[in-house]
Amino acid sequence: MSTLHVVSHSPFTDGRLASCLRVCGAKDAILLCGDGAYALHNPALHSQGVKVFVLAEDSQARNLPVPDWASSVDYSGFVQLSIDYDKVNTWL
C-alpha cells in the first residue's frame, strides 16, 4: 500500500517533515501545503528521492518557484492524489 503524507508545518521550525521522511516508504509521496511549502527550499527533501507535490496556492502565495523535482497540484489534484494513494497521513 502507498501513503500520501501531508505536511503543513515549516521544516525550518518544526520536526514533522524530518519525522515523516524517516518513515516514508518507497511508494509514498509527500504533499507540501501551508508553511510546509517552504520545504521546497530544503535540498534535503530532494536528496531523499521521495515524490514531492506542493499545493499550488501555497507556493504561489509564498513566491516559491517549484523545482523540477516537485509537482504542483490544485485542489482537484489534491483530491485525485488522495485517491491515487491508498491512504492519506496528515502530520497534524
Binding site: M1, V23, G25, K87, T90, W91, L92
Partner: peptide, 9 residues
C-alpha cells in the same frame, strides 16, 4: 503505516 488501512497522526 503500510499495514494499516487508515492513519491519524
Amino acid at each position: 503505516i503500510d499495514r494499516y488501512d487508515q492513519v491519524i497522526t
